[in-house]
Simulated assay, not measured.
Amino acid sequence: MPSAAIDDYLKTIYHHTEWQSAHITPSQLATELGLAPSSVTEMVRKLAAQGLVSHRKYGPISLTAAGAQRAAAIIRRHRLIETWLVREFGYAWDEVHDEAEVLEHSISDRLLEGIDARLGRPRFDPHGDAIPDAEGAVERVPFVLLAHAAAGHVGRVLRVSDRDPELLRAVDAAGVAVGVEMAVTDAAAVTVAGVEAVLPPGADTAIWLTA
């Protein structure tokens, strides 16, 4: 199997449980990857045979220790490259994902180490996602999805999903950035850095705050 295809599966499975606890199902994996369920079923079977995932028929999919290590390694590459593009080349946070998808499979380990050192070994990418270290360990703090935050909750923005570039641009225009303080005033209103803000539709399921 092509290495890039394996990495894409492992990344998607890994990413699914970063910000919630439920394991991914085959149908969810097929949707995330934009592939036919039959293709995903066959690939998952092959990944299980290689000891990279654990899966029972009709059940959810989880990474084995070996699969998690490999997934963390490729995610480390992706997120370091995104951070590098933003800091060194002036990319906006909505522009880096596709570039990183290409570069993560082509740069050498030596260059990746050089990028990490030059950037001061960052722990988080521009969207707030944790960058695994060379051993695969990550740093996380307790979090809550904005959609689940009660009125009166005040927290620092930990992460904004990079799934939708248009939404990233819209929340940026509303003053939202990783690290700023957000207060939930009621079910439909928030303040960002003390200023009332109007968030675009879908933002409440794309922003995570400190719990």
Rank of each mutant, 00 (worst) to 15 (best):
V102S: 06
A174W: 03
Y14Q: 12
K57M: 05
S54D: 15
T83R: 07
S38V: 14
E32M: 10
V144S: 11
A65W: 04
G152W: 06
P165G: 10
S3Y: 02
M1D: 15
G120P: 03
E95W: 02
S62K: 13
A66I: 05
A177Y: 02
P165R: 05
A193Q: 03
A73L: 07
K57H: 10
L35G: 00
T210Q: 11
S27Y: 13
D8G: 06
P26H: 12
E113S: 12
R159K: 08
F89W: 08
S108N: 06
A206C: 13
Y58H: 08
G179K: 00
A203K: 13
I13M: 02
D164E: 11
M182R: 04
T25P: 01
S21I: 04
V178N: 09
V154R: 13
R56L: 09
T64H: 02
A130D: 00
E18Y: 07
L168H: 03
A71L: 11
G120I: 05
V154Q: 12
A203S: 14
D186A: 09
L29F: 07
F124A: 08
T31S: 15
A211M: 02
L209W: 06
W93M: 11
I61R: 09
A134S: 10
V96P: 05
L103A: 13
T185I: 07
A173R: 03
D129C: 01
D94W: 11
Y58A: 12
G34V: 09
H97M: 05
S106I: 04
L168N: 07
R118F: 09
E88R: 14
L119I: 13
Q50V: 00
I107Y: 06
A183T: 11
Q69L: 10
H153P: 01
E196V: 03
V40A: 08
